[in-house]
């Protein structure tokens, strides 16, 4: 077949004639059909909804923001260490910049001077974002009920998971992250911007 000069030279796939079909026509008893579907699945086909897939991807690749404030930060560093390995859960990449992170683990007591900084960092994180309040001081003020400590970081940012402890054991924090993963898997996902329905006007175009 002669190719005209202004045709796309990369289009090299010539259409196959109908007689040479790649896929064999599917016929047979329901049991045979089921068997062939199973074989296809074993070759690597998955049936799911887009929502579940997106949630699964988001849950297993959470990137925390490196936001250690006080003693709980050391336990957070311990989960990066070799004994309680958090890279098993996909969360070892602690980003320094809030623009690249999606989980903010508030680890430690939030003082009144630090509160606007926490809010600013939360606002700088792109959606979807989650917050884990780690430890008693971040959840409710903890040991310190006085003029200098905000009684719970949920007064400043919305919190998804509270992890109690002073400091919580690294296993406790990992449990909190797993609970957050369950929460992510159960959440709704909006794909694309929400487009308002166009109102059709009667009469003039």
């Amino acid at each position: 077949m002669a190719e005209p000069k202004n045709e796309n030279p990369f289009r090299v796939l010539t259409p196959r004639p109908a007689s040479e079909s790649v896929v064999a026509p599917v016929t047979g008893t329901p049991a045979e059909l089921e068997q062939s579907v199973r074989e296809e699945v074993e070759r690597g086909i998955l049936f799911t909804s887009v929502e579940k897939m997106v949630n699964w991807a988001r849950a297993n690749a959470i990137w925390p923001l490196g936001f250690g404030l006080a003693c709980c930060a050391i336990e957070m560093m311990a989960i990066v260490g070799p004994r309680f390995d958090i890279s098993r859960f996909g969360a070892e990449v602690f980003r320094a910049s809030p623009r690249q992170a999606d989980l903010m683990i508030v680890a430690g007591r939030v003082s009144v001077k630090m509160a606007p900084v926490v809010r600013q960092l939360y606002d700088q994180m792109p959606d979807p974002k989650w917050v884990i309040s780690m430890g008693a001081c971040a959840s409710c003020g903890g040991v310190f009920n006085n003029y200098a400590i905000v009684q719970g970081v949920d007064k400043i940012v919305p919190v998804d998971v509270y992890v109690p402890g002073c400091p919580p054991r690294p296993e406790g924090l990992i449990h909190g992250i797993m609970k957050l993963q369950e929460k992510i898997m159960a959440s709704r996902v909006e794909l694309g911007p929400v487009v308002p329905k166009k109102k059709t006007k009667k009469g003039a175009a």
């Binding site: 003693c71 007591r109 003082s111 001077k113 310190f144 400590i149």
Partner: peptide
């Protein structure tokens, strides 16, 4: 001052033994 916790003020309201857990932090 971003982690100021008011421990010295709080110690005036607690006994000596009750201030020991504060010092851990």
């Amino acid at each position: 001052g971003y982690l100021h916790t008011g421990m010295e003020k709080q110690a005036e309201y607690k006994t000596y033994t009750q201030s020991i857990p504060q010092t851990d932090r």
